[in-house]
Write a protein that binds this DNA or RNA. Structure first.
Length: 271
DNA sequence: CCGACAACCTGACGGC
DNA sequence: TGCCGTCAGGTTGTCG
């Protein structure tokens, strides 16, 4: 569910609630999500002060003054419920902080995860060590895409989804970025023209920035009554638009399945 | 090394 | 109303 813009929005929402506060209580309602929680997670966090809330790829990182970093992944259905009032079904971990606030990690499908690692070694942790550059950072661009796509027979869709090439893209924003760049999702990486790669290098940060801006505005609205930080409503040009008109040319948006996942595209705009 | 696919788990939705 | 099949934003391991 949450891709880079959603995780970014969640961490920006968490930052003012948590930064500078200490965890006063961490309640675990189960021992695992996708993987077992680290040993002593609750005790190791309790009493620790939060220095920073940040993001790397689709992971949220919470640095503490004990030299530990909590690494959280929202999986497909994870949300952070701020001051939820009552505990709800699938509130697996509840964090209380010294400012009297409560945040519940809710994850119905339990594909999410929590890990606690040394801050200094976080980048070398197996979860993060093989992840490619941030698409909103300086290392991302046409040259990187050209190198990653060169001679590849895998479809462009699969390459953009590969976290080792570029961090944080998921099914939605890959579909949207390919649409903007005019690249058919099934086109092999190696056959994408240089000009299209350049367009793609511009489209990727553009769609992400717009999504973050939309998430930020919905965050200010605090639309969800329980303060849930998760993903936000946004309409997409092609994602989920099968059978609807392409916003650019009016042709009917199509859906194909690649590696078991839906790809949406405009057959007239994308080649 | 590369690419496809099943598996993990629950909920929402459409059809009958 | 209820049951069943299908699908969902991610990641990881296995197989050919």
């Amino acid at each position: 569910m949450p891709e880079l813009p959603e995780v970014e929005t969640v961490m920006r929402g968490l930052a003012p609630v948590w930064t500078g506060q200490a965890f006063t209580r961490v309640t675990l309602h189960r021992a695992d999500l996708r993987r077992p929680f680290p040993d002593g997670l609750g005790q190791r966090l309790t009493g620790a002060a939060i220095i920073a809330c940040r993001r790397r790829a689709k992971y949220g990182l919470v640095d503490t003054d004990r030299g530990d970093t909590l690494i959280l992944h929202l999986g497909m259905s994870g949300r952070m419920r701020v001051d939820p009032g009552e505990t709800a079904k699938h509130d697996h971990v509840v964090f209380e902080t010294s400012n009297g606030r409560t945040v519940a990690f809710n994850d119905a499908r339990r594909f999410g995860s929590l890990d606690l690692v040394a801050t200094a070694a976080a980048d070398q942790h197996p979860l993060l060590s093989n992840i490619g550059p941030e698409p909103l950072g300086p290392a991302f661009g046409g040259a990187l895409l050209a190198a990653a796509f060169k001679d590849r027979l895998a479809p462009a869709k699969a390459l953009l989804l590969d976290q080792r090439i570029v961090a944080g893209l998921g099914n939605i924003y890959v579909c949207e970025a390919l649409f903007r760049a005019g690249i058919h999702p099934a086109r092999t990486g190696g056959s994408v023209a240089k000009a299209r790669l350049k367009a793609l290098a511009a489209a990727v940060p553009a769609v992400l920035e717009e999504a973050i801006a939309a998430g930020g505005s919905s965050l200010r609205d605090h639309a969800a009554p329980d303060g849930t930080l998760g993903y936000f409503q946004k309409t997409f040009a092609v994602y989920g638009q099968e059978g609807n008109a392409c916003p650019v040319c009016g042709a009917m948006v199509e859906r194909i399945v690649q590696s078991g996942r839906s790809s949406f595209f405009c057959p007239s705009c994308q080649h």
